[in-house]
Amino acid sequence: MRTPIPLPLIAFTVLVYLFLMGPLVIVIGAALSDTSYLTFPPQGLSLRWFEKIFEMAAFRRTIVTSLQIAFLATALALLIGIPAAYALNRYRITLPTWLSTIFVLPVLVPEIVLGFSLLRSVAVGNDLPIFATLLVGHTLIVLPYCVRVVSASLASFDFSIEEAAISLGSPPLKTFFTIVLPNIQSGVIAAFILAFITSVNDVSVSLFLTGPGVSTLPIQILAHVEQFFDPVIASVSVLLMLLTVTVMAVVERTLGLTFLAK
């Protein structure tokens, strides 16, 4: 038998969910409006503001950069994050406890401080090109997700299977790819997709690491809003929401969305 929930509490929850969904519904409505200004409910339905995104070079360019950076940063973070997560699980007793804290640091240090410091010391101080610095910054901010999600997958992996394969003569690296990796596949996919969307949505690190020809979509949105107040941003927002929906579908397939609620 379950404890009944008091009615006022249910009413409150409904209101909070309306508060959470309302603004996003408004953005979708505004994106579909046929007017040249932002309005809700939409007046006349049209997709012209979606076409407009791709007519504007600044948006085309920053969408490409954002996707490139997100893809490369996530791939790099997985490339170094999977071995780290493996080491943290497999060789836990031989490694100091502070090591896992190190991989959480990018979440602990304020992103805006990281962005500014990368500009100051790495881009300007060491003359690294802006694109490369931006990539490093994004790799750092998605690394904790990769290590954590892959670690969670490895925690339920039975390492004796791996030992069995090795004792039967399979070389360690081959064992990793044929035995371990297939078993943590869903964790790796979920990590990829969560890291990807984190990178695409990032503002605070990218803020300082934009230069001639290099900018990301969120930074371009901020710059556009400062000058114009038209439905283009609403339609870009809808595109980003579609990306979110895709991400959620993938996470649901691999780990189940309840994974995110813990």
Binding site: L20, L24, V200, V203, M241
Partner: peptide
């Protein structure tokens, strides 16, 4: 859903 939708949006 809102959590995964960016801060800017």
């Amino acid at each position: 859903f809102p959590l995964l939708t960016g801060v800017v949006v």
